[in-house]
Amino acid sequence: MSSKRKGKKIFIGLAMVIIFFLVIALLQFLWNELMTDIFGLKSISYWQAFGLFILSKILFGRGFGKPGAGFRQRFKRTDITGEDITEEQKDRLREEWKRRFDNKCGF
């Protein structure tokens, strides 16, 4: 591995660590500015913001895997594209849609 490539990897790793800590500082700032005024909650420290960030990643973001692999990735429908159905099936779908939602959506 060349020294230029090794230097680039070190720079990217260091930048990721700095961004991680800046995100936590941003979380702390936003909490202390917004949540204390809106809901009357207590201010939090940097390490409490760190814990809140970790907890939210565990609960809502599938840990620390690849980004965007949370809710949207789990419920992504790739089997229906609209290109696989015939015109007759599209017409039946439109009629069924109108039958179900005509009065409710104001079509």
Rank of each mutant, 00 (worst) to 15 (best):
G61C: 11
I85D: 00
Q73Y: 15
W47T: 10
G65K: 10
A69M: 11
I80Q: 06
G40L: 00
L27M: 13
G106E: 00
S45Y: 12
R5I: 06
F107Q: 10
R100T: 04
R62F: 15
G82R: 06
N103T: 06
F50D: 04
F53A: 15
E87M: 12
T78Y: 05
S45A: 08
F101Q: 02
S2R: 12
L59D: 03
I44M: 13
I44E: 00
T36R: 07
K90D: 08
T36D: 02
E83T: 10
Q48G: 11
D84R: 11
L22N: 03
F60S: 09
L52F: 12
G61T: 03
R72S: 03
K4M: 04
L52Y: 14
R99E: 14
G70Q: 08
R72K: 02
A25I: 03
F64D: 08
Q28P: 01
A69E: 14
L41I: 01
L30S: 05
I10N: 02
I54K: 07
F107T: 01
L30H: 05
R100N: 04
R72A: 10
R100D: 07
G106R: 03
K104Q: 14
K9G: 07
G7K: 15
K4F: 03
K66L: 13
I85Y: 04
I58G: 02
G82K: 09
G63P: 08
R92E: 09
G13S: 08
E83K: 11
T81E: 08
L93C: 09
F11Y: 15
I18N: 02
E96I: 06
F29S: 04
F101L: 01
E33T: 13
K98P: 00
S45D: 08
R62Y: 13
T86Y: 05
Q28E: 10
M35H: 06
I19D: 06
I54H: 11
I18H: 00
F101K: 04
V17R: 05
A49H: 10
I80T: 06
K66M: 12
